[in-house]
């Protein structure tokens, strides 16, 4: 019988050891991640993209590698990037990540990228931007009027945006589909935590999303396509080894359960339970 504490130690070791000793397990790129990459790769230099940081701080280890890989691709392609946050905690995190990644590529604020800040009530913000972005965000995060930002001069609403990506840890991508995609028909993709990924697959098959990045693995796949290793690929060995350990623990638990049920019929709760 494995105690809880022993399982925790096993999981901790299965994560820590591969981080220290590189194994280099293979990682295949999935179609949904490739579709996001291709959607950005096909855009001409100067095209406008919108990235929304729709997440909280608690999911940072998953969303940061994905957001970073996508932002790197955007700046590498010299796209104009409009960013915003529809969750309060995503604001400071998104702004910091945007600034760091923009500095890597010497992108200039106001010309190559802009951060609009946070708006509550995601539904009304998404609907409002479909009519006019300036109505929802009259000023950017630094309280500069959008009229004074060169990049925003020719951008009115989703018509000028070639692709929207929601970096999310909840179901806000569904809100984007409900209110932006179904009404204004922009191209839309999401980079979401793995726990939410299965919820969005129906939107992939219906074409309401062009692609999807699911958690750390999604980030690692994107980094492979980008040929720029980052936080995603660094964690994938640990991910694979810890999954193997969990599978072995589940198998071990089942083997012990069936052996006990076979050998001990008297002591089992099922046999001692009295019928009502």
């Amino acid at each position: 019988m494995l105690s809880r504490q022993l399982i925790f130690v096993l999981i901790a070791l299965s994560v820590a050891i591969p981080l220290v000793i590189k194994i280099g397990l293979p990682n295949q790129v999935t179609t949904e991640v490739r579709n996001v990459y291709e959607s950005i790769e096909q855009l001409d230099s100067g095209s406008v993209m919108m990235i929304s940081f729709d997440h909280e701080a608690s999911s940072l280890p998953e969303v940061k590698p994905m957001a970073q890989a996508i932002l790197r691709h955007c700046f590498q392609k010299k796209l104009k990037v409009i960013t915003l946050a529809l969750m309060a905690e995503g604001t400071a995190i998104g702004e910091q990540l945007l600034r760091e990644t923009a500095n890597e590529y010497q992108a200039n604020y106001g010309e190559d990228y802009v951060f609009l800040g946070y708006r509550p009530q995601a539904q009304s913000a998404i609907l409002g931007m479909g009519e006019e972005i300036k109505r929802v965000f009259p000023q950017d995060y630094n309280n500069t009027s959008l009229d004074r930002i060169p990049m925003m001069k020719d951008i009115k609403n989703y018509n000028e945006v070639k692709l929207i990506i929601s970096v999310a840890d909840g179901d806000l991508p569904v809100t984007w589909v409900d209110y932006a995609v179904s009404r204004y028909h922009p191209k839309f993709a999401c980079a979401t935590t793995a726990v939410m990924a299965t919820s969005f697959y129906p939107f992939l098959s219906s074409g309401q999303m062009v692609g999807l990045l699911g958690g750390l693995k999604g980030a690692a796949e994107y980094e492979i396509l980008l040929e720029k290793p980052g936080m995603g690929q660094k964690g994938m060995d640990a991910q694979s080894v810890s999954h193997l350990v969990i599978v072995l623990i589940i198998v071990w638990g089942n083997v012990v359960y069936f052996l006990r049920r076979k050998t001990s019929t008297v002591d089992s709760p099922r046999s001692t339970a009295k019928p009502l």
Binding site: I11, A12, V15, A16, L19, V20, S58, S59, L60, P61, E62, T193, A194, V195, M196, A197, T198, G214, G215, L216, K217, M231, K234, G235, A238, Q239, S242, H243, I246
Partner: peptide, 26 residues
């Protein structure tokens, strides 16, 4: 099958959070 896939993704998600903290500590 759906529950299994969702649980698998959930495990992956939680392990990713642990990896993030381990990367920080190590």
């Amino acid at each position: 099958i759906f529950f299994g896939a969702t649980f698998g993704y959930t495990v992956m998600s939680r392990i990713s959070l642990l990896i993030g903290r381990m990367q920080f500590l190590l």
